[in-house]
Structure formats: structure tokens, C-alpha cells
Simulated scan of single mutants.
Amino acid sequence: MDSPEARLAVASLRERLSGRRRTMLGITGAPGSGKSTFAAWLQHQFGPDAAAVVPMDGFHLANSIIDGTPLRERKGSMDTFDAGGYLSLLRRLVLRDEEVVYAPEFQRTLDEPVAASIGVPSSVSLVITEGNYLLASQAPWPEVRAQLDEVWFIDTPPAVRLGRLVDRHVEFGMDRTAAEAWALGPDEANARIIEATRDGADRIIPWG
């Protein structure tokens, strides 16, 4: 599953972690690129005592906020996230002055974020945050980028990415026709926005 580029990136990250300062690493890429899988793999390289994963998806707006609005038809787009809340969390994690910082997590079985699902102790030296818009130019995303030491872009073949998306949507309740329509519609619209930010990444990681 991993690649030579990923192994090289891990080696460089180990060098960065030799200092005492906490390292904040962003993982971005289009929907279905494997960000969550890569972040979990990366955490495994360092161990849960040294590394924590804090997904941006925990800041999806709740369905009670978007239901009955145009946002519902493009859930996952930039304006369906609490970007300010995410930025505030990253700033707390950078400061590292609290014994534990709790972060929300998106539960796909519920299709909702759940508060305080992830605990990040102050002892953790590497925080990995993964999400779609870490390199976006619209406010407040440049401020999000400013909290991160590096951002890596996950590069996955489009056919692989789309297949994963369809399978994921089916797994969590869509019929296949609806899943394909969503993957080729809202997901693909978001993918084009995200792909346009790849030149701002510190590393491109082929994955999958």
C-alpha cells in the first residue's frame, strides 16, 4: 500500500521529530484518495503514544444545520464545514499548553460529527490532521495552513479514487446508482477544487 515516496517522507519526518517542538502535519487530497488510510498508516509508523490523527471531517456541519438548505445537496463542499472551529482546534494543538485537547470525529454510520471523540495528550509530539481543503486560498484556510509545519498531497489515480467513493457510499446506505451520481457530482466538483491546490503541497505522495 505504501510507496517509496511515502517511506522517504517518513524518514524526513523522523528527523523533524528529533526536536522538542510538536510537529503539525497536514494530509490533503481529493475525496477517495486515501487520506484517512494514509494518516492511519503514518500514525502506525510512529505509534499512538507519539502520534495522533485529528481529521478535519469532525467539523462537518451537523445535518440539523444543513437539512432543508442548498448545503445538503453539496455536503462535503468547503462551505459545509465549521472552518473557524477547526482553526481554533489547530491553534490549541500548536500551543500544547493543555494536558489533553479533545477533538470531534465524523462517524459515517451516523453521518454526523461527534464531539470530544479524540483525545490528544500534551505528550504527543506529532499531530496528523487530514482533510480536503488544507491548501485552499479562501479565508480562513490560509490561517489553517499557517498552523501546519508541512502539508502532503495524496496522489491517487482517478479511477481508483472514484471506485473507492462509490463503494464507500454504498457501504453507508446509498444504492449504487445514487452512489455513482454523488461520486461523479458533488464529490467530483470538490475534487477539482482540491486538485487545483496540489502545487502548494510540500510533498506529493503517490498512494493506492
Rank of each mutant, 00 (worst) to 15 (best):
R92E: 14
S64D: 12
D79E: 14
P48L: 04
D111L: 04
L42W: 07
V101H: 01
K75G: 09
L90H: 03
L71Q: 11
V53I: 10
L87F: 06
Q107P: 00
Y102H: 14
Q43D: 01
K75H: 10
A62L: 07
E73M: 14
Q107R: 14
D111V: 01
L71A: 14
G58T: 03
H44K: 12
E98H: 11
G47N: 10
H60D: 03
S77Q: 14
Q45P: 02
T69E: 06
Q45S: 09
L42T: 08
A103F: 05
Q107K: 12
D67W: 04
Q107D: 14
V100Y: 04
R74K: 15
E73S: 15
F106S: 03
H60N: 07
D111R: 10
M56F: 10
E73V: 11
G85F: 05
S88M: 10
D97F: 07
E73D: 15
F106T: 02
G85Y: 05
I66A: 03
L61C: 05
L61F: 11
S88I: 02
S64H: 10
E98R: 14
A51K: 02
A62F: 08
A83L: 13
N63W: 01
E99I: 05
R91F: 08
N63V: 04
L61Y: 10
L90S: 01
D111M: 05
E73N: 15
L87A: 09
L42V: 06
A62E: 12
A51Q: 04
P55S: 02
A52N: 03
D49W: 10
L87K: 05
P55L: 02
Y86W: 08
F59W: 13
Q43T: 09
L110T: 08
Y102A: 12
V54G: 02
S77G: 15
F46D: 04
Q43E: 13
P55R: 00
E112A: 05
Q45Y: 02
L61N: 02
G85P: 09
I66Q: 01
L95W: 13
Q45D: 05
D79W: 04
L90D: 00
F59E: 00
F81K: 03
V94N: 08
F59H: 04
F46V: 05
R72I: 10
P48D: 12
G76K: 04
L61V: 07
R91P: 02
G68S: 01
L95V: 14
D67H: 12
V100C: 08
L95C: 14
Q107C: 12
A52G: 08
A103Q: 03
V101A: 04
D111C: 03
M78I: 15
Q43P: 00
V100H: 07
L95Q: 15
D67C: 11
P48I: 04
N63D: 13
V101F: 03
D82K: 07
K75D: 08
E105Y: 12
L110H: 11
D79F: 07
P48T: 11
